[in-house]
Amino acid sequence: MKKPKVAFFDFACCEGCQLQVANMGETVLDVLGLIEVVEWREVMSEKWGKKVDVAVVEGSITDPHAVKRIKKIRKRAGAVIAYGSCATIGGVNGMKNNFPLEDIKHYVYGDSHRFFPTEQTKAVHQVVPVDYFVHGCPVYIPEFVAVLKAALQGIPYYPPDYPVCVECKLNENVCMYDRGVSCLGPVTRAGCNSWCINNGNICYGCRGMVSNPNEKGAQDVIAKYKIPMELVLNKMNMYNKCRELD
Protein backbone atom coordinates (compact mmCIF):
# COMPACT_ATOMS: atom_id res chain seq x y z
CA MET A 1 0.00 0.00 0.00
CA LYS A 2 1.23 3.47 -0.83
CA LYS A 3 1.81 5.62 2.21
CA PRO A 4 -0.60 8.53 2.53
CA LYS A 5 1.00 11.92 1.83
CA VAL A 6 0.80 14.31 4.75
CA ALA A 7 1.75 17.99 4.81
CA PHE A 8 2.04 20.39 7.74
CA PHE A 9 1.11 24.07 7.40
CA ASP A 10 1.08 26.99 9.79
CA PHE A 11 -0.78 30.29 10.05
CA ALA A 12 -0.93 32.80 12.90
CA CYS A 13 0.47 30.82 15.80
CA CYS A 14 3.59 30.27 17.89
CA GLU A 15 4.40 27.02 16.06
CA GLY A 16 4.44 25.36 19.45
CA CYS A 17 2.15 22.59 18.27
CA GLN A 18 4.55 21.71 15.46
CA LEU A 19 7.26 21.59 18.05
CA GLN A 20 5.17 19.16 20.10
CA VAL A 21 4.80 16.93 17.06
CA ALA A 22 8.47 17.23 16.15
CA ASN A 23 9.33 16.30 19.75
CA MET A 24 7.23 13.16 19.76
CA GLY A 25 10.39 11.08 19.99
CA GLU A 26 9.92 7.37 19.41
CA THR A 27 6.24 7.75 18.66
CA VAL A 28 7.10 9.97 15.72
CA LEU A 29 9.06 7.12 14.14
CA ASP A 30 6.10 4.77 14.42
CA VAL A 31 3.76 7.36 13.01
CA LEU A 32 6.18 8.18 10.22
CA GLY A 33 6.14 4.50 9.36
CA LEU A 34 2.52 4.99 8.38
CA ILE A 35 2.80 8.21 6.40
CA GLU A 36 4.98 10.14 4.01
CA VAL A 37 5.56 13.72 5.12
CA VAL A 38 5.88 15.81 1.97
CA GLU A 39 5.82 19.34 3.32
CA TRP A 40 6.73 20.72 6.73
CA ARG A 41 8.44 24.08 6.94
CA GLU A 42 9.67 23.60 10.50
CA VAL A 43 11.54 20.36 9.87
CA MET A 44 12.27 20.11 6.13
CA SER A 45 13.17 22.36 3.23
CA GLU A 46 11.36 20.54 0.38
CA LYS A 47 8.18 22.00 -1.04
CA TRP A 48 5.67 19.59 -2.49
CA GLY A 49 2.88 21.90 -3.65
CA LYS A 50 0.70 19.13 -5.12
CA LYS A 51 -2.22 17.06 -3.82
CA VAL A 52 -1.88 15.63 -0.32
CA ASP A 53 -4.00 13.07 1.47
CA VAL A 54 -3.94 14.90 4.78
CA ALA A 55 -3.17 18.57 5.48
CA VAL A 56 -2.34 19.31 9.11
CA VAL A 57 -2.97 22.99 9.78
CA GLU A 58 -1.78 25.04 12.72
CA GLY A 59 -2.70 28.66 13.46
CA SER A 60 -5.62 31.04 13.02
CA ILE A 61 -6.66 32.92 9.91
CA THR A 62 -6.06 36.62 10.50
CA ASP A 63 -5.54 38.38 7.16
CA PRO A 64 -6.69 38.22 3.50
CA HIS A 65 -3.49 36.51 2.42
CA ALA A 66 -4.09 33.70 4.91
CA VAL A 67 -7.67 33.30 3.69
CA LYS A 68 -6.41 32.76 0.13
CA ARG A 69 -3.70 30.37 1.25
CA ILE A 70 -5.93 28.17 3.41
CA LYS A 71 -8.47 27.92 0.58
CA LYS A 72 -5.73 26.67 -1.74
CA ILE A 73 -4.59 24.15 0.84
CA ARG A 74 -8.15 22.94 1.32
CA LYS A 75 -8.43 22.37 -2.45
CA ARG A 76 -5.40 20.12 -2.65
CA ALA A 77 -6.04 18.19 0.57
CA GLY A 78 -8.11 15.03 0.97
CA ALA A 79 -8.67 15.72 4.66
CA VAL A 80 -7.85 18.77 6.75
CA ILE A 81 -6.81 18.39 10.37
CA ALA A 82 -6.90 21.66 12.31
CA TYR A 83 -4.59 21.31 15.27
CA GLY A 84 -3.88 23.56 18.20
CA SER A 85 -6.28 26.07 19.72
CA CYS A 86 -5.33 28.82 17.24
CA ALA A 87 -6.56 26.64 14.40
CA THR A 88 -9.49 24.88 16.10
CA ILE A 89 -11.08 27.68 18.13
CA GLY A 90 -9.07 30.81 17.29
CA GLY A 91 -7.27 30.55 20.60
CA VAL A 92 -5.40 33.49 22.12
CA ASN A 93 -5.32 35.20 18.72
CA GLY A 94 -9.03 35.72 19.24
CA MET A 95 -8.26 38.42 21.80
CA LYS A 96 -7.66 40.64 18.79
CA ASN A 97 -11.42 40.57 18.25
CA ASN A 98 -11.89 42.49 21.50
CA PHE A 99 -10.75 45.66 19.69
CA PRO A 100 -11.79 47.57 16.53
CA LEU A 101 -9.65 46.45 13.59
CA GLU A 102 -8.51 50.02 12.86
CA ASP A 103 -7.14 50.44 16.37
CA ILE A 104 -5.34 47.12 16.10
CA LYS A 105 -3.70 48.08 12.80
CA HIS A 106 -2.48 51.40 14.16
CA TYR A 107 -1.28 49.86 17.36
CA VAL A 108 0.76 47.12 15.71
CA TYR A 109 1.99 48.69 12.50
CA GLY A 110 1.91 52.40 13.32
CA ASP A 111 2.25 54.58 10.23
CA SER A 112 2.76 51.61 7.90
CA HIS A 113 -0.59 50.07 8.78
CA ARG A 114 -2.04 50.51 5.29
CA PHE A 115 0.49 48.01 3.92
CA PHE A 116 -0.82 45.36 6.30
CA PRO A 117 -4.44 44.54 5.63
CA THR A 118 -5.90 42.58 8.52
CA GLU A 119 -9.11 40.81 9.46
CA GLN A 120 -10.86 39.54 12.56
CA THR A 121 -9.22 36.39 13.85
CA LYS A 122 -10.95 33.22 12.70
CA ALA A 123 -10.51 29.55 13.45
CA VAL A 124 -9.77 27.45 10.37
CA HIS A 125 -13.29 25.94 10.19
CA GLN A 126 -14.68 29.48 10.11
CA VAL A 127 -13.03 29.88 6.68
CA VAL A 128 -12.90 26.40 5.09
CA PRO A 129 -14.45 23.04 6.04
CA VAL A 130 -12.36 21.08 8.55
CA ASP A 131 -12.54 17.29 8.91
CA TYR A 132 -10.67 16.78 12.17
CA PHE A 133 -10.03 18.91 15.24
CA VAL A 134 -7.14 18.46 17.66
CA HIS A 135 -7.76 21.06 20.33
CA GLY A 136 -5.24 22.31 22.86
CA CYS A 137 -2.50 24.83 23.46
CA PRO A 138 -0.37 22.99 22.72
CA VAL A 139 -1.95 19.82 21.33
CA TYR A 140 -1.82 16.74 23.55
CA ILE A 141 0.27 14.29 21.55
CA PRO A 142 -1.70 11.11 22.33
CA GLU A 143 -4.81 12.85 21.00
CA PHE A 144 -2.93 14.09 17.94
CA VAL A 145 -1.86 10.51 17.24
CA ALA A 146 -5.43 9.26 17.75
CA VAL A 147 -6.69 11.81 15.23
CA LEU A 148 -3.97 10.96 12.73
CA LYS A 149 -4.91 7.30 13.05
CA ALA A 150 -8.60 8.11 12.52
CA ALA A 151 -7.71 10.17 9.43
CA LEU A 152 -5.65 7.28 8.04
CA GLN A 153 -8.46 4.82 8.83
CA GLY A 154 -10.89 7.15 7.10
CA ILE A 155 -13.19 7.32 10.14
CA PRO A 156 -14.31 10.43 12.03
CA TYR A 157 -12.81 11.49 15.35
CA TYR A 158 -15.19 13.14 17.80
CA PRO A 159 -13.39 15.19 20.46
CA PRO A 160 -15.00 14.45 23.83
CA ASP A 161 -17.99 16.70 24.54
CA TYR A 162 -17.62 16.55 28.32
CA PRO A 163 -15.45 18.61 30.66
CA VAL A 164 -11.83 18.15 31.69
CA CYS A 165 -13.10 17.30 35.21
CA VAL A 166 -14.02 13.84 33.94
CA GLU A 167 -10.45 12.94 32.99
CA CYS A 168 -9.10 14.77 36.03
CA LYS A 169 -11.22 12.65 38.38
CA LEU A 170 -10.21 9.47 36.56
CA ASN A 171 -6.63 10.51 37.27
CA GLU A 172 -7.59 11.04 40.92
CA ASN A 173 -6.07 14.51 41.11
CA VAL A 174 -6.82 16.66 44.14
CA CYS A 175 -9.37 19.15 42.79
CA MET A 176 -8.07 22.68 42.25
CA TYR A 177 -11.21 23.95 43.94
CA ASP A 178 -10.19 21.94 47.05
CA ARG A 179 -6.85 23.71 46.88
CA GLY A 180 -8.77 26.97 46.88
CA VAL A 181 -7.85 27.80 43.29
CA SER A 182 -10.30 28.37 40.46
CA CYS A 183 -9.94 26.27 37.35
CA LEU A 184 -11.73 26.18 33.98
CA GLY A 185 -11.86 22.38 33.93
CA PRO A 186 -15.63 22.23 34.55
CA VAL A 187 -16.53 24.00 31.29
CA THR A 188 -13.60 23.01 29.09
CA ARG A 189 -13.75 20.19 26.58
CA ALA A 190 -11.79 17.10 27.67
CA GLY A 191 -9.39 15.07 25.54
CA CYS A 192 -6.12 16.25 27.10
CA ASN A 193 -6.23 13.67 29.91
CA SER A 194 -6.18 16.66 32.32
CA TRP A 195 -2.56 17.20 31.34
CA CYS A 196 -2.11 20.54 33.14
CA ILE A 197 -3.76 19.51 36.41
CA ASN A 198 -1.78 16.25 36.48
CA ASN A 199 1.28 18.52 36.53
CA GLY A 200 0.05 20.87 39.22
CA ASN A 201 -1.33 23.63 37.01
CA ILE A 202 -4.93 24.80 36.62
CA CYS A 203 -6.98 24.42 33.45
CA TYR A 204 -6.92 27.60 31.34
CA GLY A 205 -9.63 26.41 29.00
CA CYS A 206 -7.34 26.06 25.99
CA ARG A 207 -9.45 23.36 24.35
CA GLY A 208 -12.56 25.50 24.11
CA MET A 209 -15.82 25.00 25.91
CA VAL A 210 -18.04 21.93 25.86
CA SER A 211 -20.95 22.35 23.45
CA ASN A 212 -23.51 23.25 26.11
CA PRO A 213 -21.58 24.70 29.05
CA ASN A 214 -23.37 26.00 32.13
CA GLU A 215 -21.46 29.27 31.86
CA LYS A 216 -23.58 31.14 34.35
CA GLY A 217 -23.18 28.35 36.90
CA ALA A 218 -19.42 28.26 36.33
CA GLN A 219 -19.18 32.04 36.74
CA ASP A 220 -21.06 31.79 40.03
CA VAL A 221 -18.68 29.09 41.24
CA ILE A 222 -15.57 31.06 40.28
CA ALA A 223 -16.96 34.28 41.72
CA LYS A 224 -17.08 32.55 45.13
CA TYR A 225 -13.31 32.74 45.06
CA LYS A 226 -13.62 36.53 45.30
CA ILE A 227 -12.52 36.99 41.72
CA PRO A 228 -14.13 40.04 40.04
CA MET A 229 -16.66 39.01 37.37
CA GLU A 230 -14.77 40.95 34.72
CA LEU A 231 -11.71 38.83 35.36
CA VAL A 232 -13.81 35.66 35.29
CA LEU A 233 -15.17 36.62 31.88
CA ASN A 234 -11.69 37.48 30.65
CA LYS A 235 -10.49 34.09 31.84
CA MET A 236 -13.29 32.39 29.93
CA ASN A 237 -12.63 34.42 26.81
CA MET A 238 -8.86 34.02 26.76
CA TYR A 239 -9.09 31.11 24.33
CA ASN A 240 -12.75 31.30 23.43
CA LYS A 241 -13.33 34.73 21.92
CA CYS A 242 -13.71 33.43 18.35
CA ARG A 243 -16.71 31.26 19.24
CA GLU A 244 -18.79 34.41 18.70
CA LEU A 245 -18.13 33.90 14.98
CA ASP A 246 -19.34 30.26 14.90
Partner: peptide, 11 residues
Amino acid sequence: ARCLACGNCTN
Protein backbone atom coordinates in the same frame (compact mmCIF):
# COMPACT_ATOMS: atom_id res chain seq x y z
CA ALA B 1 -28.91 26.37 37.09
CA ARG B 2 -26.28 25.13 39.53
CA CYS B 3 -25.06 21.83 38.12
CA LEU B 4 -22.05 22.20 35.82
CA ALA B 5 -22.52 18.68 34.41
CA CYS B 6 -18.88 17.90 35.14
CA GLY B 7 -19.57 14.31 36.15
CA ASN B 8 -17.56 14.56 39.38
CA CYS B 9 -20.42 13.28 41.54
CA THR B 10 -20.74 10.04 39.58
CA ASN B 11 -17.04 9.44 39.03
